[in-house]
């Protein structure tokens, strides 16, 4: 058993265990903490495979951005402190059956794919070639994604504002002008 394989086994068990934790956790913030461990594990898996840029991107975008947003949302929308999530037993049975079927199908495909000869190709290209690729051979998706991000930015800001915001905003700026605390 080589070192790579041993590290992979450790990482994979951490990822799998915390993925189960996400599903069975009782409160939404605990789910988010297990998701945090899953995402960090996946980031280190990328480092192990040799895709350094993707590992760092996973850390900064998912862990530093998306997951903080999710926890933030979970805190803002929970009715009370430590509100528990209830799941009916029938739903567990049915959902578990579907998930097991999907896992079995995918695992069979994966094993079949693993039989094919793969070459131990050199490490995937780093940040530099990736950036060049984004501006030359993959320019169109890059531009589409950037426009899409702008649309998302405007759309999310538009959706999340409340109806009363206009009145509140003017009140707030008025109090700021008067030097008072809002």
């Amino acid at each position: 058993m080589t070192l790579d394989l041993a590290l992979f086994v450790v990482l994979a068990s951490v990822i799998a265990a915390s993925a189960i934790g996400v599903v069975v956790a009782h409160t939404i913030v605990r789910s988010a903490v297990f998701l945090l461990f899953t995402l960090i594990g996946v980031a280190f898996l990328y480092f192990l495979i040799g895709a350094e840029f993707l590992g760092a991107a996973q850390l900064i975008v998912y862990v530093g951005g998306t997951l903080v947003l999710l926890v933030f949302g979970g805190m803002l929308t929970s009715g009370g402190p430590f509100q528990t999530l209830r799941v009916r037993r029938l739903e567990w049975l049915f959902g578990g059956f579907v998930a097991l079927a999907i896992f079995a199908a995918l695992a069979q495909v994966s094993l079949a794919l693993g039989q094919r000869p793969t070459t131990d190709a050199p490490l995937p290209p780093g940040a530099g070639p990736l950036g060049v690729a984004f501006l030359t051979s993959h320019l169109l998706p890059f531009e589409i994604v950037s426009v899409h991000l702008l649309v998302v930015l405007v759309g999310a800001a538009y959706l999340a504002r409340t109806r009363k915001r206009a009145a509140l905003g003017s009140e707030d700026s008025a109090s700021r002008r008067n030097g008072g605390t809002p």
Binding site: T2, D4, L5, F8, A12, I15, A16, A19, I20, V22, V23, T38, V42, L45, L48, I49, G95, G96, V98, A99, L100, I102, F103, L106, A107, V109, S110, L111, L113, G114, Q115, T118, D120
Partner: peptide
Amino acid sequence: MIPLSYILILSAFLFACGVLC
């Protein structure tokens, strides 16, 4: 070197967990 099928099975497991979630 990690066999490809191990990584694919891990990802299949994550996918199944996501669907269950």
